[in-house]
Simulated assay, not measured.
Amino acid sequence: MNTIEEELWNYIDGNCTPAEQAAIARLIEQDEAYSKKYQELLQLNQEFAAMELDEPSMAFTYNVMETIRTENARQPLKAAIDKRIIIGIAVFFIFTILALLVFAFANTHSQLSAFDVKVKLPAAVKLPNVANIFTSPVFKWFIMFDVVLALFLSDSYLRRKKTTKQA
């Protein structure tokens, strides 16, 4: 069962059923302890009702939001990109482009004797026929992709260099 104070607070606040209200009213009339406690709690409730609630200033919410906004603005947004991955991708593309250029120059027949390159491989090593690969649209798209990627990477590198100089 509830303590005396809990029952009396429910009675004062009007949170009890009519049967409980009647029972508590009888206890207040008959029991001296209930009567004293009821008078104390009633007086306390009246003091609470007479108090003015403190309200924050009009600009409080605005000041709090501005503080939060400036704290978030101070922290730079950085993506967690590992530079080793970027270097690995760049090395892969550089080696791929160099290998394609070596094969392209080795398989072209130039009329200048200074650029005439003959690749001599052991008899056990057979190179695949790459004549159809270099003329296919897939190869052209691959070279175009590499050129666009190289331009993009060089542009981002130069922009980053420019912004660090300005800062």
Rank of each mutant, 00 (worst) to 15 (best):
M1L: 07
W9H: 05
N10A: 15
D13I: 03
C16K: 04
C16M: 12
C16Y: 08
C16H: 07
C16D: 15
C16Q: 15
P18R: 02
A19V: 11
A22I: 05
A25G: 05
R26F: 07
R26H: 08
R26C: 03
I28V: 08
Q30D: 13
D31C: 04
A33L: 11
Y34C: 01
Y34S: 03
K37W: 06
L42R: 08
Q43N: 12
L44Y: 15
N45F: 09
Q46H: 13
A50C: 01
A50E: 10
E52Y: 04
E52A: 13
D54S: 13
E55D: 12
M58S: 15
M58D: 13
M58K: 13
F60A: 09
T61E: 09
Y62E: 15
Y62R: 06
N63A: 09
N63Y: 09
M65R: 02
M65T: 14
E66H: 11
E66I: 07
T67R: 10
I68N: 05
I68P: 02
A73E: 14
R74I: 07
Q75L: 12
P76I: 04
L77F: 03
L77M: 06
L77A: 00
K78N: 08
K78V: 09
A79T: 03
A80L: 11
I81R: 05
R84P: 03
I85C: 04
I85V: 15
I85K: 06
G88P: 01
I89K: 10
A90F: 10
A90Q: 06
A90C: 03
F92E: 11
F93L: 04
F93V: 01
F93M: 02
I94N: 08
F95W: 06
T96R: 07
T96M: 14
L100H: 04
L101I: 14
F103V: 09
F103E: 10
N107Y: 04
N107G: 14
N107M: 07
N107S: 05
N107W: 00
N107F: 07
T108M: 11
S110C: 02
Q111H: 14
Q111C: 06
L112H: 15
L112M: 09
L112F: 10
L112I: 06
S113A: 14
S113F: 06
F115M: 02
F115Y: 11
D116S: 12
V119W: 09
V119G: 03
K120G: 04
L121A: 05
L121C: 01
A123Y: 08
V125W: 07
L127D: 00
L127F: 06
V130C: 06
N132Y: 11
I133R: 02
T135E: 13
T135W: 09
V138N: 08
F139I: 10
F142K: 05
F145L: 11
D146R: 07
V147Y: 00
L151S: 06
F152K: 00
F152T: 03
L153C: 09
L153Y: 08
S156M: 15
S156P: 01
L158Q: 02
K162T: 04
T163E: 12
T164H: 15
T164L: 14
K165Q: 14
Q166V: 06
A167W: 05
